[in-house]
C-alpha cells in the first residue's frame, strides 16, 4: 500500500480531530489546519457536557495526545485556507498562517469548520447587548467556569432564566429550523446552576423540550425532578430593567395567564448558524450547501459534499459532540475507501 496520499482536514474541533486521527492512524498523511491558536473548537469553551456531565476538555486532551503520537499527522494552528484549485484527482490549496503562505497538493478534503451562534441583538425585546446580564448560552458556559473556580467569592444569583429557541423556529427574525441541541444544553446549564447554588431559582422558558437521543429524556427529567429546575411553557415577550435586575414578561400558555419573574441573569439559547469559516470554505471549494449555508450532503453517500470533498460536524447542521465525533469517523471512512481504491 502506498502512503503518498494526503488528506486536508479543515477545522480542529472534535469532528475534524476525529477525522484526522482515523485517516492518519490508517497510514495516510493528514494536514489538520485550525484557524484558532489551539484545537478543540466549541468543546474547549464548555464547562461540562450533557448527557453524562463529562468534562469536554478531558476528551480534547485525550484526542490531542493521540494526534501528537501519530507521525502521519501535521497540525497547523493559526492557519487558514486562502484558495483551492481543482485538479483532475486532487486540489492545489493555498494555506496562510501568521508568517508565511504555503501551497500544498491534497488528494481529499474534509471540511469541519463548525457553526456559530446567531447574533441575537436581532431580538431587541430581550436586550442582548444592552443589559449586562443578558448573555447567550456560549457566554454562559464561560460564566459557569468562572463561578466554579471562584465558588466561594461569587454571590449566587437569586434567579436565572433561560430562554429557548431564540432565533430558532422563528421565521420573523431568525431561522425557521430547530437548532437541535439547545434544549439539551439549556437543561444541562440550568441543572449545573442548581448544583452549584441550590437556593438559586432556575426557570426554563420553553415551547417544547426536544430530547430525542440516548439518555436525553432521562437527563431532562432529572433536571426537572431532582435538580428542581422549573419549566415554564411560553416564549418570553420582553425583558425590562428593574432596580438593577431583569423583569421578564411572558404568558404561561398552559395556564393561559400573563406571568412575570424578576431574574439576575437571562441566558439566551441562540440559534446555531453556519460559522463564518464554513461559509468561506463553501466559497473556496466546489461543495453543496443548503439555503442557510450549511454544508449539504450528496444523496446516497456518507458525509460527501463534492468531488473528493467530505464534511463532518456542526458545519453541516447543529449536532451534539458525540454526533460530531461519529461524523468525523464516518468522513474518515470515506476518505480511506477512496484512497484504498486508488492504490
Amino acid at each position: 500500500m502506498s502512503e503518498t496520499k494526503t488528506a486536508l482536514v479543515i477545522g480542529g474541533g472534535i469532528a475534524g480531530i476525529e477525522a484526522a486521527l482515523k485517516i492518519g492512524q490508517s497510514g495516510y498523511k493528514v494536514l489538520l489546519v485550525e484557524v484558532a491558536e489551539s484545537l478543540g473548537g466549541v468543546l474547549e469553551k464548555l464547562y461540562n457536557s450533557y448527557p453524562r456531565y463529562e468534562n469536554p476538555a478531558d476528551l480534547i486532551k485525550y484526542k490531542v495526545e493521540q494526534l501528537n503520537e501519530c507521525p502521519n499527522i501535521t497540525v497547523m494552528t493559526q492557519t487558514k485556507v486562502i484558495s483551492a484549485d481543482q485538479k483532475p484527482n486532487s486540489y492545489l490549496v493555498k494555506l496562510q498562517n501568521k508568517s508565511e503562505a504555503k501551497e500544498v497538493e491534497v488528494d481529499a478534503v474534509v471540511i469541519a469548520t463548525g457553526s456559530q451562534m446567531l447574533d441575537v441583538t436581532s431580538h431587541g425585546e430581550y436586550g442582548y447587548g444592552h443589559y449586562d446580564n443578558v448573555v447567550n448560552s456560549l457566554e454562559f458556559e464561560e460564566i459557569l467556569k468562572e463561578w466554579a473556580t471562584n465558588k466561594d467569592k461569587v454571590t449566587p444569583p437569586k434567579t436565572v432564566a433561560f430562554f429557548k429557541c431564540v432565533g430558532s423556529r422563528d421565521r420573523s427574525k431568525g431561522y425557521p429550523y430547530c437548532s437541535k441541541i439547545c434544549c439539551m444544553y439549556t437543561a444541562k446549564q440550568a441543572g449545573v446552576v442548581k448544583e452549584m447554588f441550590p437556593d438559586t431559582k432556575c426557570y426554563v422558558f420553553y415551547m417544547d423540550y426536544r430530547a430525542a437521543g440516548r439518555e436525553y429524556e432521562e437527563f431532562v427529567r432529572s433536571v426537572i425532578e431532582d435538580k428542581k429546575v422549573k419549566y415554564v411553557r411560553g416564549r418570553p415577550a420582553k425583558v425590562l430593567p428593574e432596580d438593577g435586575r431583569l423583569l421578564i414578561r411572558a404568558e404561561d400558555t398552559l395556564r393561559g395567564m400573563p406571568i412575570e419573574v424578576t431574574a439576575d441573569m437571562v441566558v439566551l439559547a441562540a440559534a446555531l448558524e453556519p460559522s463564518a469559516g464554513t461559509k468561506e470554505m463553501s466559497n473556496i471549494f466546489p461543495v453543496k450547501t443548503d439555503k442557510y449555508g450549511f454544508i449539504d450532503y450528496e444523496t446516497n453517500e456518507v458525509m460527501k459534499t463534492g468531488e473528493r470533498i467530505y464534511y463532518a460536524g456542526a458545519c453541516s447542521f447543529a449536532v451534539e459532540s458525540l454526533g460530531a465525533m461519529h461524523q468525523g469517523g464516518a468522513a474518515a471512512a470515506q476518505v480511506l475507501a477512496l484512497f484504498n481504491q486508488e492504490n
Partner: peptide, 25 residues
C-alpha cells in the same frame, strides 16, 4: 397554521391584563 402556540404574542400584549381571551387564545 404557521402559529407555534408559543404565547409570545400574549406575553407581550400591552392590554393582556384586561383581556378575557388572550391573543394566543
Amino acid at each position: 397554521n404557521t402559529c407555534l402556540e408559543c404565547g409570545k404574542c400574549s406575553g407581550g400584549c400591552s392590554n393582556t391584563h384586561i383581556f378575557d381571551i388572550t391573543a394566543r387564545q
